[in-house]
């Protein structure tokens, strides 16, 4: 048993890689020894597994169902007939909710999107340099950057806020974009460097012989080959920044420039929506960008977070 496990070591690591790449829904047959008709027959244990999973699934979905149900009711229906289904369905709640939060959603998309784009560009460039160039002080600078993984956001929150104040950027999009761009680079650089390091040297030699400049071989060879890792970085950064709450709360005071995560919590006080239905509809609408993002980027997200390791 033990010897076998040791022998499996390298192969196992390789198979993690391929499975992670292939991602969703392509799990191999788990028990090759299981015969075909065993699937049809639910043994006692299997029945138990199904029951427990179903119960957990239902409980997990209660808040979501509750959210959707409330989003289609008006206050009268909620307070008067709490347990009944929405009748009539108040689809106009979604119109009201979107009126209240569209601006915040756009702010979020704008700031998350631009900071993510900048992060990807900068981190791929410097990741390339750290992976393929030799220059004095390289490892030291790289270690210095990695050390930032040890710095929790809570330590830098207040000084960074004061810095933003001193720069006069408080209450502007820059107050979000610049620190997010900067902060995302550490994890992105880690991913990009290790990916670029795996690219075969021959490609770059060939390019050099053909007379390509350093920047050309970066743009024409490294970037196209590393598209998957760059998408991973982008998805993780988009999700992370879209969910950011504390930093925008601190540096953005104007409701006009506020991002959606904070704006949702200020529904009643700032935006003036007091009815529950439109509020709940707003919550659902605020999730739409994430639904879109996850529908194609889920496996990138998981891979990115697993590989990034320390920094969520």
């Amino acid at each position: 048993m033990v010897t076998m496990r040791e022998g499996q070591g390298t192969e196992r690591n390789a198979s993690v890689a391929t499975r992670a790449e292939s991602g969703e829904g392509t799990g191999q047959p788990i028990l090759s020894s299981g015969s075909a008709f065993a699937i049809l027959r639910l043994s006692g244990t299997q029945f138990l597994l199904y029951t427990v999973l179903l119960v957990l699934l239902i409980v997990t979905f209660i808040p979501i169902v509750y959210l959707v149900a409330l989003s289609l009711k008006d206050n009268g229906q909620i307070y008067g007939r709490f347990w009944s289904m929405p009748d009539p369905y108040r689809w106009e709640n979604f119109a009201l909710g979107s009126l209240a939060i569209w601006r915040a959603v756009l702010n979020s998309i704008l700031t998350s999107g631009s900071s993510t784009a900048a992060t990807v560009v900068l981190a791929s460039l410097s990741g390339y340099v750290f992976a393929r160039h030799r220059f004095p002080g390289k490892e030291m600078i790289y270690t210095g950057i990695l050390a930032l993984l040890m710095i929790p956001p809570i330590l830098t929150l207040i000084p960074a806020y004061v810095l933003i104040l001193n720069m006069g950027l408080e209450n502007t999009y820059w107050a979000l974009i610049l620190p997010w761009t900067s902060g995302g680079q550490v994890f992105a650089l880690l991913l990009c460097r290790s990916f670029f390091a795996t690219l075969p040297e021959e490609f770059f030699d060939a390019a050099r012989i053909d007379g390509a400049s350093e920047l050309q071989s970066f743009a024409r060879i490294a970037v196209p080959l590393s598209a998957p890792i760059l998408v991973t970085v982008a998805v993780v950064r988009l999700v992370t920044t879209y969910n950011q709450f504390m930093w925008p709360l601190v540096v953005i005071s104007s409701p006009k420039r506020q991002v959606v995560a904070v704006a949702l919590t200020q529904f009643t006080s700032e935006i003036g929506v007091t009815d529950l239905g439109p509020q709940m509809a707003g919550y659902i609408l605020a999730s739409v960008p994430l639904i879109v993002l996850f529908s194609f980027g889920m496996r990138h997200y998981v891979r990115g977070l697993t590989a990034g390791g320390l920094k969520a």
Binding site: A123, L155, T156, L163, G183
Partner: peptide
């Protein structure tokens, strides 16, 4: 090429960290 990365990190990550300490 790494200058923009370093400049941003020094400004928005390193400086606040030491400033906080």
């Amino acid at each position: 090429l790494i200058l923009p990365t370093l400049a941003l990190l020094l400004t928005f990550n390193y400086y606040p960290a030491f400033s906080g300490l």
